[in-house]
C-alpha cells in the first residue's frame, strides 16, 4: 500500500524563537519583564501580535517587547539600563543567528 498526500490543511502556532528550548508546553510561556504580557501576545500599545510587535534581545540575555523596552529606555529614570539587571542595555545580535549557524 502506498499513501499519497494530496493536500494537508494543518494548524500550527507560531512562537518567538527566544533560543530557550521549548520543553513542553501548553503553559503560558515566558512573559515580557516590563508589561507582563506573554512574548507571543502584544505590548499594551499594540493591537496586533507578531511582526507588528516584535521582541528585542539584550546582551544581558533578557528579552522584552521592543516597544516596551524603547519606552523604558526613553525615560530618564532608566539610565539606559536593562530593567532586569541594571546593566547598561546593549541590544544583542539576534539569537536566531546562533540557531541558524547550528
Amino acid at each position: 500500500m502506498k499513501v499519497h498526500v494530496k493536500n494537508w490543511h494543518a494548524i500550527a502556532q507560531w512562537r518567538w524563537d527566544t533560543g530557550a528550548s521549548d520543553v513542553d508546553d501548553d503553559g503560558e510561556g515566558d512573559v515580557c519583564g516590563i508589561c507582563r504580557v506573554p512574548y507571543e501576545g502584544c505590548c499594551p500599545s499594540c493591537k496586533m501580535p507578531g511582526d507588528d510587535c516584535p521582541l528585542i534581545w539584550g546582551e544581558c540575555s533578557h528579552v522584552f517587547h521592543m516597544h516596551c523596552l524603547l519606552q523604558w529606555i526613553s525615560t530618564s529614570a532608566s539610565k539606559q539600563q536593562c530593567p532586569m539587571d541594571r546593566r547598561p542595555w546593549v541590544t544583542a545580535e539576534r539569537k536566531v543567528d546562533a540557531n541558524a549557524a547550528r
Binding site: 502506498k2 499519497h4 494530496k6 502556532q13 512562537r15 524563537d17
Partner: peptide, 26 residues
Amino acid sequence: FHSFKQDKKLRWLPHLGTIRLEIELQ
C-alpha cells in the same frame, strides 16, 4: 518557515486539520 521568518518557529497542533489522501492498494 523558519528561514522565511527568522525569529519565529512553528509548533504543530497535530490533531487538528484535515488531510486529503489517496490510498493506493493493489
